[in-house]
Design a protein around this nucleic acid. Structure first.
Lengths: 147, 147
DNA sequence: TGCTAAATGAAATATTGTTGCATTTGTGAT
DNA sequence: ATCACAAATGCAACAATATTTCATTTAGCA
């Protein structure tokens, strides 16, 4: 599930996308790759107090542009970011997977290994990508007793 | 596609949900029913300058609670609202339909008449509802020449 | 080592979401 | 018809987020 990576691999990722290797970027990468759920900007801010909010904002944007991460929205409409599976390219995400919004803990899970059946759209609509959200209770919350 | 309704029907809708018949609410209803695409709060503000922003915010919220409209997010993560199909009840939306985000005009279309195939989630995840987004070009934009 | 473009941090502004409160208004009971 | 009251509105204020500008710093390369 989580793709374990070390600092050298993160440096390679940045180099591959012609991005400079900076401390904030490496820290964002290592945090995002260590999590099984998507990360919101507030999440990052809470962990990395010393990095400017705007810097985080820009890092997330450029990572998304480059296809390193992709954006999903939780139930409140706030942006969350998750590392892309291998199929992503610059400006063209292969995020045809399921996003699971847990209504209890509000975490967003990316569920990559799920077959998304083909769909036929009405006449005239040309779909380039699909995003599927499921809302419910995640395994962790299911185990925990209700507050 | 668009369900044509008149003022009397809007008044009935409000009464059915124990909501008072007020001018702002009737205007919001008539605007939303006249459109084939979802409406954002800024959209409403731009058309109805004289109605307070907070009032619109609250009208949208209570309409959503009552199951009159449902919320969808566009590609920027801003909330859009669309009238619910007949199957919606209070606090439990039947919005298992497709939302089409046009990447060009940014409009959100609700495509009700589309069969959403059943999906099997990984062990432990309990889904209560699904929301499917498709991103691409809508028929209108397809016809228009690129700026 | 030094140059240059890229990246950061800080300040400032725009937009959106949200709450509290005083005032107005719709509606059911009289 | 009107009265009373709860509901709805409008306004002010605030919080959070998104976004731009610009001066300063820094990474990567010649």
């Amino acid at each position: 599930m989580t793709q374990v990576k070390n600092t050298f691999q993160f440096e390679d990722m940045l180099k591959k996308h012609h991005l400079k290797k900076t401390a904030p970027r490496l820290r964002v990468l290592s945090m995002m790759y260590s999590k099984t759920t998507a990360t919101s900007q507030p999440d990052l801010e809470n962990v990395m107090h010393d990095i400017d909010r705007v810097t985080l904002y820009r890092i997330l944007n450029i990572f998304e542009e480059k296809g390193i991460i992709h954006k999903v929205f939780d139930l409140n409409g706030t942006a969350n970011y998750a590392v892309c599976s291998s199929g992503c390219q610059e400006n063209h995400h292969h995020d045809e997977h399921l996003h699971f919004n847990c209504t209890r803990c509000k975490n967003v899970y990316c569920i990559n290994d799920l077959y998304l059946p083909g769909l036929t759209l009405p006449e005239g609509f040309k779909a380039e990508s699909f995003t599927l959200y499921a809302n419910g209770i995640c395994p962790k919350c299911e185990k925990k007793p209700h507050h």
